[in-house]
Structures are given as structure tokens and as C-alpha cells.
Design a protein around this nucleic acid. Structure first.
Lengths: 95, 95
DNA sequence: TAGATTATTAGATAACTCTCTAAATATCTA
DNA sequence: TAGATATTTAGAGAGTTATCTAATAATCTA
């Protein structure tokens, strides 16, 4: 879980996630959306991959990246736990 | 939003959030839950405060910290956007 | 197989983060 | 006001991260 949160702590990586939400993309296509070298994007993709937030699959010369919604949902579970245990306003402490 | 994600990227800070989910606590009480010096905890509290994830209020000699659920919900919105825009599967793509 | 294309790995560096000790600030109480 | 308690600020050191250029690896095509 720590790797996941750390992966999400960078704006470039969050933008990559938003791009992959729209459609699967190759590493090069992703890099085209940023003013940053391809090796830098590759570094970010590796962190996202290690956190299991994205999946990769070679397709010929390209490597196609896609969003792993399962792990995104796991992170949301963490937040639900926080909000869920707190939404009961102070005063009534029923379950 | 970036400050918020960065604040969440540290396990100590996420643990503080989980503590404050249970009840409001003073800085000293929070520090008692960790094997770390008070200045270090103070540093983490400051980052959480700057990210508006927690609120602080002086109560005599102590400073009472509480969770700001509004911002936690904002972060959840980010995730909803990701999952929400993805779960409605476009056509029937790869399986 | 040679050359082109796509992407990653290696290595360096600047910037940032976490943690500590020591010192300072704010508040309460006798 | 002096001393005790609670917390933060300042400054430093070790470790981590983001980014770059150069080199390497994998795949396709003629």
C-alpha cells in the first residue's frame, strides 16, 4: 500500500493515470503528452508498474500500458475506511 | 491536490490520520503512538495541516488536532473520477 | 542481416524529505 | 514572576527522488 501511495504522490504519474483512464497507450504515446524525456517517463511508468497501478504488455515494437483498476479500488477502500468511521457526527456514537 | 497526495505518501502520516479518525488528539498524545521524537511528529503534523487534511486548535497548553474529512472526501473524488470513468466498459474490448 | 523504431537501463546530479538534537515559544500554576 | 509543561522552529545529516544524457535491448522490415 505504501508503494501505491508513493506512486500517486507525483503529478506526472497521476496525469499518466488519467490518460490511461481514457484508453490504453504505448510508452511513446504517453511520453508525447509531456515535456519530459522518454527515459523520465519510463521511470515513472516503472514506478506505477511496481505499484501495480498499471499493467504493461508488449505489442510488437511498442509496449502497451493500461490502468489496473483493481488496485485503484484498493486505495479507495483505505479512504472509505477513514470516511466511513467518521461521518457519524460527534454526539451520536452509534456503531 | 498535490500537497494532499504528498502528505498521504508517508506511512507515519497515514497512521496519524487513522488515529484522528477515532478521536481528536493533542500533538503529545499523537506522538505517544510512535517511536519517534516529538519534533518529527510535529513536522508530520505540519505537513498534514498544510495539506488541510487535519485542523488544529489550541486548548490551553495543548494543541488539539482533528481530521478534516472534507479534504479526505475531495481526494476520494479524484479516485471516483478514475474508477467511474472506467467501470462503464466501452463496448466490449479486451478480455 | 542491416537499419530503423520503440523503449528501457545506467550513471550522474540537484533537489527534496525524514529524522535527529538543541533552542525557542506559548501557556499554565504556584 | 519563576518554573513546569506542551509544542514548534532551526539547523544539520543521511537517504531518496526526479530528471537528464548516453548507451543498451528488443522488435520489425526491407
Amino acid at each position: 500500500m505504501n508503494d501505491t501511495f508513493k506512486a500517486l504522490a507525483d503529478p506526472t504519474r497521476r496525469q499518466i493515470i488519467r490518460l490511461l483512464k481514457e484508453r490504453d497507450m504505448s510508452a511513446g504515446e504517453i511520453a508525447d503528452h509531456f515535456s519530459m524525456t522518454k527515459p523520465s517517463i519510463s521511470h515513472h511508468l516503472n514506478i506505477l508498474k511496481h505499484a501495480k497501478l498499471v499493467l504493461d504488455e508488449r505489442k510488437g515494437q511498442s509496449i502497451l500500458y493500461s490502468l489496473n483498476t483493481t488496485v485503484v479500488q484498493d486505495v479507495m477502500g483505505w479512504f472509505f475506511e477513514i470516511i466511513g468511521g467518521k461521518t457519524e457526527e460527534e454526539g451520536s456514537k452509534h456503531e
